[in-house]
């Protein structure tokens, strides 16, 4: 393939990546923004979402479309419930102390991984996409008679991937509406700004925290359900999304939702593009070092508000 079509393919792959990453990182950022804790088990909620999606679709069988729709709704709800329960049982009881929360969520990480290994097993399992039409894409070239369209071999995308690309903006708009237009959104924003004052205004902060932790995990699970038809479900699949979400949340500025979305698109795109042209390992080395250096230079993140 020539460079032009190759790049376009890379951009499309990057958009798929960016879409999933936006959802996952948004969950992490929401939790950090409202609760001021780092959830190291976030990647495992992603993994649980993927595994539960496999479970739901294989349980329902039948039409791929219907089963997938059930997974799309069911898996995030279940993961959200698990996370809220974990929050209630564990995080609430360590009083959301930042360091103890990190240690506790590391504990949760191992527990989720091991339980999945013991029930789901060590194999990677696929989930059939609900629809998967291959769409060839045109490219142009400067011919003798001006611009001419042609269909290069290999330049195509599936309808499912387009669906994934479209999903993130839809969820984002929905989330934005919830945050700005509903009472729940108001409560979340108030808690985020100052939990003490929120408490004084009779906001049940502990319930809000459990809910936020659940929503954060559900967003990761949603990203995972979207990705399983492309990449298979596996009990160790949580590490990469965790790392990438961390990177996104940091670059975007800890706790800043707008920055998170911007950074997710940036990182997702560049990760997708870089891994088409370079080896993924080199891309990851580069990315982790960049994140470390960004934090060293600007502890508030690239788009974060500067604190003095």
């Amino acid at each position: 393939m020539e460079f032009g079509p190759h790049l376009m393919l890379a951009v499309l792959e990057g958009l798929v990546q960016a879409s999933v990453l936006t959802l996952t990182a948004l969950g992490l950022s929401l939790v950090f923004g409202v609760m001021r804790v780092v959830n190291v088990a976030h990647g495992e909620f992603f993994m649980l979402g993927a595994v539960l999606a496999w479970w739901i679709t294989s349980l329902l069988g039948g039409g791929a479309g219907l089963a997938f729709a059930a997974a799309l709704v069911g898996a995030p709800l279940m993961v959200g419930a698990i996370a809220a329960l974990a929050d209630w049982l564990v995080l609430r009881r360590v009083a959301y102390d930042p360091e103890r929360t990190i240690v506790a969520t590391i504990g949760l990480l191992y527990i989720f991984q091991q339980i999945t290994l013991m029930t789901f097993g060590p194999d990677a399992r696929p989930v059939p996409p609900p629809f998967n039409t291959r769409l060839a894409l045109p490219w142009f070239e400067w011919g003798e008679g001006g611009i001419a369209l042609y269909w290069p071999w290999g330049l195509s995308i599936t309808s499912y991937k387009l669906f994934v690309i479209a999903a993130a903006p839809v969820v984002l708009v929905a989330l934005w509406l919830v945050m700005t237009r509903t009472r729940l959104g108001l409560v979340l924003r108030a808690t985020r700004i100052d939990s003490e004052t929120a408490r004084a205004f009779a906001i049940p902060v502990e319930q809000v925290y459990a809910l936020v932790f659940g929503i954060g995990a559900a967003l990761a699970a949603l990203g995972a359900v979207l990705v399983v038809p492309i990449r298979q479900a596996h009990y160790l699949m949580g590490a990469d999304p965790l790392l990438l979400s961390f990177i996104v949340v940091i670059i975007g500025g800890l706790g800043s939702l707008r920055g998170t979305v911007l950074a997710a698109v940036l990182i997702g795109m560049s990760d997708g593009i870089i891994s088409v042209f370079f080896t993924p390992t080199l891309a990851k080395i580069f990315a982790t070092l960049v994140v470390a250096m960004v934090l060293v230079a600007r502890p508030g993140g690239l788009f974060g508000e500067r604190r003095t």
Binding site: V38, P98, I102, L243, F246, I250, L254, T279, T281, L282, K284, I285, T288, L289, V291, A292, L295, V296, A297, P299
Partner: peptide, 26 residues
Amino acid sequence: ALRTTGVAFMIVTLMFAQALFLAILY
């Protein structure tokens, strides 16, 4: 890493360690 504190310090150390691990693979 000591230019950062708290959570940022933890993440910076995590990232450097990850970079070294990946470098060993690479």
